[in-house]
């Protein structure tokens, strides 16, 4: 239900966007050529637009770039089983969209196949590395140091926990989400060495339902709260709502992920439990990449790393729940930026 509603909403937003694009398109037809309008292709990850997280953040970045440079954005989402990803990218490239931005690591394999077929198109992949150039010379990886942001989330959880027990809920068991877990656990232990950490995943590798199953998220988080945890951090995409619900039901607290979920969650009862969110500024990364593209500064076959030092990741302070430990957090942050603390990326 909510998914359908979200899709309808996303659809109507796209329609609205389209209406305004047409005007822009008309004025631009005269220009053509190199100075022509920016045509950004945006291929989303499974959940698509309206996830209030990852994909929406990428769109916000493209939107901001358009505000700056003009042009239009064409959004496409894969079908439910993600089997048409290669088609999404090829069609965008074929229809002249440039740059084409793939959102999510799930595009790893297909990008390596599609990008070499369209050497004149500039590709970028959010959450996918192309430091070795294996995906082609025209692909740039936009990667994030999730472990660094998660480290701070771990510090915040440990310092704020009254029971000495915290939890981590991962969406799908995968190397990417394990980065969140590794950082969170390292941060919690750094702040409080005797902290008890309970980490669990909603679905096993290969089963992507864990990113869009709030009911299961709630069950997993509830078991943590019942076992004595009072703060749970989630890296579970759309399932996070369930984690918030479990926190609200148990009088506990939760830490959101990707975007400032205190702002996006809407339900005031859930808002009250969101202590902070681990921000992953996909919007900034996308906007910066497009701006680089416009300036002709995209090299390809490289990665752009977004970490604490570039404010690509960080903690939100909406609601003012963590203002009292801001000093501690800033200290850890500085130590990570200075390289005094090496945050692990895997367990």
């Amino acid at each position: 239900m909510t998914k359908a509603a979200a899709l309808l909403l996303a659809g109507s937003l796209a329609l609205a966007a389209c209406a305004s694009d047409e005007e822009g398109g008309d004025t631009a037809t005269g220009n053509g050529g190199a100075s022509g309008d920016l045509k950004i292709g945006l291929a989303y990850d499974e959940a698509g637009r309206g996830d209030k997280s990852f994909n929406d953040s990428a769109y916000a970045g493209a939107e901001a770039a358009i505000d700056e440079f003009g042009g239009e954005v064409q959004e496409v989402s894969p079908n439910e089983d993600g089997s048409n990803r290669a088609e999404l990218l090829s069609n965008l490239a074929e229809q002249g969209y440039n740059p084409v931005i793939a959102v999510g690591f799930a595009y790893d394999e297909v990008l390596g196949e599609v990008a070499p077929q369209f050497p004149d198109t500039v590709f970028a992949q959010v959450d996918g590395s192309n430091a070795d150039g294996a995906k082609g010379d025209n692909v740039t990886g936009l990667v994030f140091a999730e472990e660094e942001g998660s480290f701070l989330a771990g510090v915040a959880a440990a310092l704020k926990s009254e029971t000495g027990q915290v939890g981590f809920v991962g969406g799908v068991e995968s190397p990417l989400i394990e980065k969140f877990q590794a950082g969170f656990e390292a941060g919690a232990r750094a702040a409080k060495p005797d902290i008890v950490i309970n980490s669990q995943y909603i679905s096993p590798a290969g089963d992507f339902s864990g990113f869009s199953d709030p009911a299961k998220g709630q069950i997993v988080a509830q078991s943590m709260f019942d076992a004595g945890a009072d703060i749970v951090y989630h890296a579970a995409g759309g399932s996070g709502t369930g984690v918030f619900q479990a926190a609200a039901a148990s009088g506990g607290r939760a830490i959101g992920v990707d975007s400032d979920q205190y702002q996006t969650v809407e339900d005031p009862a859930l808002q009250a439990v969101i202590m902070t969110s681990m921000l992953k500024r996909v919007d900034n990364a996308v906007q910066a990449f497009i701006s680089d593209y416009v300036d002709g500064n995209v090299e390809g076959a490289t990665d752009v790393l977004n970490d604490l030092s570039t404010e690509g990741v960080g903690l939100s302070d909406s609601g003012g729940f963590i203002t009292d430990i801001k000093g501690d957090l800033d200290q850890y942050r500085q130590q990570i930026v200075d390289g005094e603390i090496e945050v692990p990326t895997s367990l």
Partner: peptide, 19 residues
């Protein structure tokens, strides 16, 4: 129908129509 999901998106019609 599955294939149509993509061109529909290019025409700014939500692909959930296919679903």
């Amino acid at each position: 129908l599955d294939r149509a999901a993509l061109p529909l998106q290019f025409a700014d019609i939500p692909s959930s129509v296919v679903t």
